[in-house]
Design a protein around this nucleic acid. Sequence first.
RNA 1: GCGCCUGUAGCUCAACUGGAUAGAGCGCUUGGCUACGGACCAGGAGGUUCUGGGUUCAAAUCCUAGCAGGCGCACCA
Length: 574
Amino acid sequence: MNIFDNYLQKINKLILDNKKSLNLKNLDNLKNINLEVPPEQFNFDLSTNISLVLSKPNKIDSNDLANKIKELFIKFIIHFEKVEVAGPGFINIKLSKEGILSNIKDIFNNRNFYGAKKSNKTFNIEFVSANPTGPMHVGHCRGAIYGDVLSNLLSFNGNKVVKEYYINDYGNQIENFVESVYRRIREIKYNEKFIAKENLYPGDYIREIANNILKQNKNIAVNNFKDSFKELKQLSLKESMALIKNDLKLLGITHDIFSSETDLINKDLVSKAVKCLKKDNYVEEGFLTPPKGELSKDWKKIKRLIFKSTLFGDDMDRALQKNDGSWTYFANDVAYHMDKINRKFNNLINILGADHTGYIKRITAAVLALSKKKVNLNCKVCQLVKLYKDGKPFKMSKRAGDFISAQDLLNEVDKDSLRFMMLNRSNDVELDFDFDKVKEKTKDNPVFYVQYAYARINSIVRALNINLNDKILIAPDKFNPNIYEEKILRKIFEWPKIIESASFKYEPHKIPYYLYELSTLFHSYWSKGNEDNKFKFIKNGKVERDETLAFVFLIAIVIKNGMNILGVSLPEKM
RNA sequence: GCGCCUGUAGCUCAACUGGAUAGAGCGCUUGGCUACGGACCAGGAGGUUCUGGGUUCAAAUCCUAGCAGGCGCACCA
């Protein structure tokens, strides 16, 4: 448990025990009470809005109430040493040395789990799910890293998380892809010119796939596309998935499960899913409303099965069947999500690219319908990535033809920097990715800055020949933190809050921001030694004050936990 | 036209499920360090949080009407 939860619980109990003397009759909004880090200038450890929240419904003056609560705090909560009412009725609290030390002890005891918000739900996170028609590109990278780190974060809290990849190995795009491979094979085998007609994939990697297939299947028949299709599809998919898995590996990402769309269809799960929806009257046979504006030539008014997604907040009902009666992509996806529901997850999360925003309502609706509103699907969207190099938008088209591949990126920057920078923004915001910045070994590069703090800590450990895994426990009478250490400590105490809010809103970007701030405090303290000898960490090969070492170790613990979640490495030397 | 996302310092962005004097980095500016305990540190200037209304003790945050930008609006995948 973190210190905020811990003390908040004590505060709540104290208020309930004393509600008569405080003249509190209405405690409905007790849950709105929070315990936070006060703004820095106040120089306190904790701050609560309790009086502001309770005064109104009980028709008491906020300041009067705050002062009464203040007295209770001092009297009954042993770790609260100094309590002050400030502003409109906030109560600021400074912890006693004993209180601080007991919390420090907890951190050392929890160590690799310090900050975790304990939870034991089951999550399924579907991410990347790039079409298996070629290697990953930049846009996939962002979602891939976001999904991976979100999984790490939720696992860190103790949840069971399954990372899943949905292979869209069915439909027209796959046929076009396989045909492209087919033609490339003929090109190699019979010297037949590859004509890049519409819908075919022109990229060089198709040629490589063709080569690989030929190498292993010298006698493969490519006389007639229809006849070769089945075998070639299987071989081509194997190749393209190998490309994708390799890209993922380079990014440091592994999925637990790869689910195949073709599999779902073969198992007839689609008709089962539709039947399930039908049973609850969510499916009707009818006509789609024609698209607004000018009718396209393809538009046909045909009776078909339609999912009534508007019942669950969608803008329009969605077709489950195409003109020819076959299932739509959406219908297959409904089946896929039914499969996930049947695998008993509390929470489903889909990570999508910005271009799939319009799809969210219908699939969320489907999950609600299939699960009788028991399972919640949460779709998170990653906005576009814009690349910059030399201050200009960066466009590169090497092997791919028309897109920048993950490999192109990784040729320029290392995995750690890529991961950190991709996370250093809220997923809802477009991300400018500047190659030059990421490669710098300066403060401009936040990855470096955080890693450097950790490396500096390790230089101390080396100089003193001590072990970073030791606990530094200090007796209260010998504990005299200076102002820099107090600041650091408050930041360290804040860590569980960061984890909590990052987990709650699925916003892992809060972690890199926090780590940067923590690193700033460290570098700043470190530099004090250059200005004033009394702040030097090491003098004559020794540490004079245990506090120094304790704070340095605490910082190391938090940076390590944070970077582990981000999946970014921490060199001990740089 | 409809839906989703975004709008905060010159630029790129934070702001802990409504909190106190809205914070960082870059850029600008002033100073310190000349070091492997290196690749940094400290200070300064810089704000009508897109606009108008509303809710609240308290609004960048919630509601509402607009404005601007991005993405999407198939029987594709």
